[in-house]
């Protein structure tokens, strides 16, 4: 049996705004086993980053709140950890590569300053001298295949290319040995060849360090190539989960099917106009299944209650009333 590393249970995240709440996550479930590579896909704004920020406990304060749900990481509920414990967790267990590498680097400090602080404050390196820390920083830049680490340590973010910044972010995220790496659309802002190099790098590092990876992406192609299992997310919760080959050969949820339709096919002549409609308003979210306003197969029951996950087989589940009888 594989060991469960991360278990997100019925997680809700709301943002307090003028006059009420944006109810962004409405019961998200996700499970990650140690050492595996899990994909997370969904349209922009569906709550992928928000879910992961909740896991790291870096939701904006005070208006980002988690009214319900649990995030169990190695038998401890992340949401109820004390400050010191959560800092320890961030140093040694979970890490995250932010979606936009330019925004994730502080523009007024050198890369060296930032990287050294991350090493300095990790408890394992308590009391280490500047020289040793610097050597660790140099090594961490080498590990992400950056040439001339000394020069990069002395550089400010604006002096680096997009690809270099992305690698620096990976080095920062992996300063310590971690068990889970959350990679939020790594390389999306870069051109395809560089994105591919970045994904290859993350894959290699994950294998070397025996890390589990949650890979967030818009691109089904990326998910198909680099993950073993996939969650499909729509408007604040997971709608389908399957092993990667299974999901691609047999997508069940109408939303997943629509997503697949949108992927440009090399052979086909058909143009793709995307899924009709758009992600709902989180201030007044649709009742029941949040996909119902856009769903071609909706039924009366769909507007009433949120569909639970129906287990199709050992490695396939789907949150849609169409499959009610099959579990």
């Amino acid at each position: 049996m594989k060991e469960v590393l991360l278990d997100i249970k019925d997680l809700q995240v709301h943002f307090r705004v003028y006059g009420g709440f944006l109810k962004v996550l409405n019961g998200t479930n996700m499970r990650v086993y140690s050492g595996e590579k899990v994909g997370l896909v969904g349209e922009t704004g569906c709550g992928k980053t928000t879910t992961m920020k909740a896991v790291m406990r870096i939701l904006p304060k005070p208006h980002g709140i988690t009214p319900e749900g649990k995030i169990i990481f190695k038998n401890k509920n992340v949401l109820s950890l004390k400050t010191q414990e959560i800092e320890r967790l961030r140093r040694n267990e979970i890490s995250m590569i932010f979606q936009d590498p330019t925004a994730a680097l502080n523009p007024v400090f050198t890369i060296g300053e930032q990287l050294l602080d991350v090493f300095r404050y990790s408890k394992k390196n308590d009391g280490l001298k500047g020289k040793t820390l610097k050597q660790m920083a140099v090594d961490s830049l080498r590990a992400v295949a950056l040439p001339d680490p000394e020069r990069i340590l002395a550089s400010y973010p604006i002096q680096l290319s997009g690809g270099m910044r992305q690698r620096v972010c990976i080095a920062l995220a992996l300063a310590n040995q971690k068990q889970l790496l959350i990679a939020d659309e790594p390389g999306t802002s870069l051109d395809v060849t560089i994105q591919d190099q970045i994904l290859r790098l993350i894959h290699r590092l994950a294998e070397e360090r025996n890390m589990a990876v949650i890979l967030i992406s818009h691109s089904l192609g990326v998910i198909r190539e680099w993950t073993e299992r996939v969650y499909v997310m729509y408007a604040g919760s997971m709608v389908e989960e399957a092993t990667t080959p299974k999901l691609f050969s047999q997508p069940l949820h109408p939303y997943t099917q629509a997503l697949m339709e949108c992927v440009p096919r090399l052979t086909g002549m058909k143009t793709n106009e995307g899924i009709p409609g758009r992600i709902p308003d989180y201030f007044f979210p649709p009742t029941g299944c949040r996909f119902h306003p856009r769903c071609p197969k909706k039924m009366a029951i769909c507007q009433e209650e949120k569909p639970p996950f129906y287990q199709i087989d050992d490695n396939h589940q789907v949150a849609c009333y169409l499959y009610k009888g099959e579990s």
Binding site: K53, M56, I58, E87, R88, R90, R91, N92, S95, M96, F98, Q99, D100, A103, A104, L105, N106, P107, Q114, D117, V118, Y121, S122, C169, L172, A173, A175, N176
Partner: peptide, 10 residues
Amino acid sequence: DYTYSMRAYG
């Protein structure tokens, strides 16, 4: 993000 990232790295 750069404030959150430093926090996220402990």
